[in-house]
Amino acid sequence: MKAIILAAGRGERMRPLTDHTPKPLLRVRGKPLIEWHLEGLARGGVRDVVVNTAWLEEQIVATLGNGERFGMAIRYSLEGRDHGGALETAGGLKKALPLLGVSGDAPFWYVAADVFAPAFDFGPAAASAIQAGQLGHLWMVPNPPQHPGGDFGLAGGLATVADGGASFTWSGIGLFRPNFVNELMAELALGEKARLRPYLDAAIAQRRLGARRWEGGWADVGTPERLRALDEGDGCTTAPAAA
């Protein structure tokens, strides 16, 4: 398994903390937020990771290096250097994918650097969640207070349109096949800014986007207050399921 970590955002809502430090390097419980993901991926057997960067990207490269200390190889998709700024989620994914070197329809992990899910298991059992014919598979969490309307519905193991029924929030963690990009983003030019949501909706329309709930602790580290809550206590918007 390989992985792409999306770490290019400016982190406007985290200012002034992100004025001089990129959001993925803000420290949560003693270590940079992105390192929680790298350590989790390494435990799951992932050995090749691409990190996309833009804002203060040289700090991310200098901090993480080539990935050797995590037991993996890290490459960088330098959107700041190459395009003058972040390409957003879909544009960033399209630029980063060739660096990952995946072949055929082998799935890869997609991880948003600004979420906190330290107990997530990136091992083979989770990686097998994506079914034949699916372009992606998302892990959903209960809707946090700052996002009460959620993102998607969930029915029969598939992500669905949230049409007024029960809805869930995408955790920022998922599996995708290369054809999610190659098929659905064929018209998106390399280096063009674009958000991921329309392409997720296209996969839902084709009934090719799987989904399941994540019952572990999770937080969207979107504001200084949420970051402080994580450091001062549990602070997870969704608590781990009882043992």
Results as ranks from 00 to 15, higher is better:
64 L>Y: 00
215 E>T: 15
179 N>L: 15
76 Y>R: 01
85 G>H: 10
101 G>E: 10
55 W>D: 03
177 R>V: 06
32 P>K: 04
23 K>S: 15
139 W>D: 00
12 E>W: 12
110 Y>C: 06
223 T>D: 05
210 G>D: 10
5 I>V: 09
4 I>S: 01
72 M>Q: 02
242 A>R: 13
226 R>K: 09
21 T>S: 10
191 G>T: 09
222 G>I: 02
95 K>D: 15
171 S>N: 07
227 L>W: 04
171 S>G: 03
213 R>G: 13
8 A>R: 03
216 G>D: 04
118 P>I: 02
175 L>S: 01
96 A>V: 05
74 I>Y: 06
188 L>I: 12
89 T>Q: 14
11 G>V: 05
123 G>I: 04
243 A>E: 12
147 H>I: 12
79 E>D: 11
185 M>F: 07
172 G>H: 01
94 K>I: 13
67 G>H: 01
69 R>E: 07
219 A>S: 14
7 A>S: 14
43 R>Q: 10
34 I>R: 01
79 E>A: 14
162 A>L: 07
67 G>C: 07
159 A>E: 01
49 V>M: 00
104 G>F: 10
155 A>Y: 11
211 A>L: 05
85 G>T: 01
183 E>V: 12
173 I>A: 02
238 T>Y: 06
210 G>M: 02
37 H>R: 02
9 G>H: 13
56 L>K: 08
179 N>K: 14
118 P>S: 00
50 V>T: 07
138 L>H: 07
9 G>S: 13
142 P>F: 03
142 P>Y: 04
73 A>C: 14
131 Q>H: 14
203 A>I: 09
157 G>F: 01
19 D>C: 07
88 E>S: 15
223 T>G: 02
236 C>N: 06
43 R>P: 10
11 G>C: 01
130 I>G: 07
79 E>I: 02
231 D>K: 10
72 M>N: 03
186 A>R: 15
23 K>C: 15
158 L>Y: 11
160 T>C: 02
18 T>P: 06
212 R>E: 15
142 P>C: 04
21 T>P: 04
139 W>I: 03
178 P>M: 06
142 P>I: 08
48 D>C: 11
27 R>N: 12
123 G>H: 10
178 P>R: 00
134 Q>P: 04
59 Q>G: 03
188 L>H: 09
11 G>H: 08
150 G>W: 00
155 A>T: 10
191 G>Y: 04
146 Q>H: 14
89 T>L: 14
190 L>G: 15
12 E>Y: 14
169 T>L: 13
143 N>I: 08
114 D>R: 08
106 A>P: 07
18 T>H: 08
112 A>I: 08
163 D>M: 13
131 Q>K: 14
200 L>P: 11
106 A>Y: 05
231 D>G: 12
110 Y>Q: 00
31 K>S: 12
74 I>T: 00
217 G>S: 10
140 M>A: 09
213 R>W: 09
132 A>V: 14
90 A>K: 07
57 E>N: 06
217 G>E: 12
73 A>R: 14
26 L>F: 04
237 T>Q: 13
98 P>T: 11
164 G>V: 10
141 V>M: 08
122 F>H: 05
104 G>D: 09
159 A>R: 03
133 G>P: 11
28 V>C: 08
84 G>S: 09
66 N>L: 12
13 R>K: 14
164 G>F: 06
86 A>K: 14
5 I>A: 01
36 W>I: 00
159 A>L: 08
43 R>C: 09
